[in-house]
């Protein structure tokens, strides 16, 4: 599979105008999280994206929020967003049904460097809803499996009920060429899997740190601890990638909201290497 060149990604003439998409399906993932599969209403629209990019998603008359794309980058025009209901807009999204309309601006931002190396180990570390922006990278890696050496997913959720994409994870786990480890912060009755925070999986995960590229996504504290743990194992700073979150309003570097030191998270990020941001990520209120 060939990924599109980033320059060709701008599907819209005016990046400030949303395109209309409609909901194809809605799936409840956990108590507060759901996945919408959407497609463009207008024919002739070709929506391509890279793993790790996001859209600005608009609910008519309610508002617009940045949401990462969680579908297969190989399937254009069939876009999925996994959304947690936390604010006014995401709660309104939670009420959408098949056939309802959404405004989409995007795709925006940088992507996971999936072609950074050949024959290297890939370690994907996800915390909570941080698995959503990593899923397109997983799809890409699995459909180009021969290009990589070991592929490992370390996924931490709050409780067993908060685990996203349960059926899919089971499928991934059954593959012989994909090492999947899931852990929860708090076990519940009947949970037979790991209990402990996701960082505890790192020391014992099977990968060769010398030749590993790591993709990390989750709450910022989790990403900091994970980076330190990966460094402790010997993964190189420039091979650790994190997906940052800030207040993104315009998505195109024109509104100033998502500044992180010299970077605009929306267009220079959200994916950064650890070496790019290590001087800022441990400072407060940047």
């Amino acid at each position: 599979m060939e990924l599109v060149e980033k320059e060709l990604l701008t599907t819209i003439q005016n990046p400030m105008l949303p395109l209309t998409f409609q909901v194809r399906s809605r799936r409840q993932e956990t108590k507060d999280t759901f996945t919408l599969e959407i497609e463009p209403v207008e024919s002739g629209v070709e929506f391509k994206f890279l793993p790790g990019q996001f859209n600005m998603v608009y609910v008519f008359g309610v508002g617009e929020v940045p949401i990462s794309i969680s579908s297969d980058p190989n399937r254009w025009n069939r876009i999925a967003h996994t959304i947690r209901m936390v604010g006014v807009v995401t709660k309104a999204m939670g009420k959408l049904k098949k056939g309802d309309l959404l405004g989409i601006r995007g795709p925006f931002g940088s992507s996971w460097p999936i072609d950074r190396c050949s024959e290297c180990d890939i370690v994907i570390v996800a915390g909570g809803i941080g698995l959503a922006p990593l899923r397109p990278a997983i799809y890409h890696i699995l459909s180009n499996r021969e290009k990589y050496n070991r592929v490992v997913l370390l996924y931490g959720a709050r409780t067993p009920d908060d685990i996203l994409y349960k059926n899919e994870i089971e499928k991934w786990r059954s593959r012989f060429d994909f090492e999947v480890y899931v852990t929860v912060d708090r076990g519940t009755t009947g949970w037979k899997g790991n209990v402990g925070v996701v960082t505890t999986l790192i020391p014992r995960a099977p990968f060769n740190p010398e030749n590993t590229v790591a993709f990390v996504c989750g709450p910022e504290i989790m990403m900091r601890f994970t980076s330190l743990e990966l460094l402790k194992r010997g993964v190189k700073e420039h091979n650790i990638f994190l997906s940052m979150e800030r207040n993104m309003k315009c998505g195109i570097g024109l509104c100033g909201h998502c500044q992180f030191g010299p970077a605009f998270i929306c267009k220079d990020g959200p994916v950064f290497s650890y070496s790019q941001i290590k001087d800022l990520i441990f400072k407060r209120e940047i």
Partner: peptide, 19 residues
């Protein structure tokens, strides 16, 4: 200084909206 924000508003009937 160029920082800006957007507000999404709708009329009372919910038939039209603007940014």
């Amino acid at each position: 200084c160029f920082c800006n924000t957007v507000e999404d508003v709708t009329d009372l009937t919910g038939q039209s909206a603007k940014r």
